[in-house]
Design a binder for these strands. Structure first.
Lengths: 193, 193
DNA sequence: GCATAAGTGGACCAGCGGACCGTATCGTAC
DNA sequence: GTACGATACGGTCCGCTGGTCCACTTATGC
């Protein structure tokens, strides 16, 4: 059964309105009613189509997630399969950070509407598992399972936003920090307990 | 002017009821009305005394924060002043992690009621600055400012809870991971890009 | 015992996410 | 072109939230 024409039109209007609102407004000034109003649609239309606000946000990022996933799964190295393990790790971190920087508002909305939905998300599970694999390949001796979660947490959109706007760190400093977190490039003397 | 006797009694009742509720109930089932009811007090009483729910949670953790702060500022080494820089860093991490484990519910409430209040908190600023100092002393070559924030983020109560309950990591694994994050003990070959 | 300042709590508010269901529109079969 | 069943629609209602208001009670100092 194909989607009815008015339904498709409304779905598009809702997605567009939601995206615009999330970009423009502060996160907690965006509400179901405001999205509905901006899309010229009733609240119930949004609810039925997307289940809840979390579903709406999911629908917004889903295509971008799949795009990045396919680059990771079958793109060209070092982000895609093949190549040096260390290079693969760093390429992956760059891709994740860029993804967060480009989609900060949506990711923050995702974190906002589902407290642990962030980690529990199928997408996040993919990112974390992949991260753990690449950490393990590059640094076989560390606890890749824990480190993957820690690094992924450091990539949360609210954390990045906080570092940028409240701590005035520029993105390249953050990028360097994330890389160093996953794979410390320098260790001086006297660093072990 | 001294606090009126009934006011003091109510303050204590509210604090006790709030603490009990935060411990027992899931965070988003705790509401102003329920705390008030449990304390046998009107909502307005809570509001006027603590400003808002964030203030209430603040009042609950404040004494524990000051207790730990004084141990850090003037306790015995290595947590207090003096001693080896690396030992000081690790002692501090242990103290922070223990603090989070002991006060998880309150810290989660704090994070919940003020999205960035968590970091913006004067207390958090103290923890982070101190962490940056100790990281810098132990590892002068790293970006201690960034790393302090990253490690502190890894110590967020919601993150710890997630790792424990959803990822089934025991606390000692998390502890080891946090230490390694702040000061990686081992680096094999081929780890630099 | 009384004046008065301090403290109180239930009614009230605007806002939220979400559910309901009578109605309007669409796609289709004729 | 028309009639009809399925689908999608949105205004209205619900329970709940954090927070405010203000007529009332109570503890305290004299």
């Amino acid at each position: 059964m194909t989607e009815r024409a008015d339904a498709a039109r409304n779905r598009a209007a809702v997605l567009a309105a939601a995206e615009a609102l999330f970009q423009r407004e502060d996160l907690d000034h965006v509400s179901l009613a405001r999205i509905a109003q901006a899309a010229g649609v009733g609240k119930a239309t949004i609810m039925r189509r997307f289940g809840d606000l979390l579903g709406l946000v999911d629908a917004l990022i889903a295509p971008r997630v799949t795009a990045l996933q396919s680059r990771v799964r079958s793109g060209k190295p070092p982000l895609g399969p093949g190549g040096d393990a260390v290079a693969r790790l760093h390429a992956y971190l760059d891709a994740l950070l860029d993804f967060v920087l480009e989609n900060r508002t949506l990711i923050r909305a995702l974190e906002h509407y589902g407290p642990h939905a962030y980690y529990a998300n199928p997408a996040s599970r993919f990112w974390i598992d992949e991260l753990a694999d690449r950490i393990h390949a590059a640094r076989p001796t560390v606890d890749a399972g824990y480190l993957a979660h820690a690094v992924f947490t450091a990539l949360r959109a609210d954390v990045i936003d906080y570092l940028r706007w409240h701590q005035h760190m520029d993105t390249e400093r953050i990028r360097a920090g994330v890389h160093a977190l996953a794979n410390p490039p320098d260790l001086g003397p006297n660093l072990h307990r």
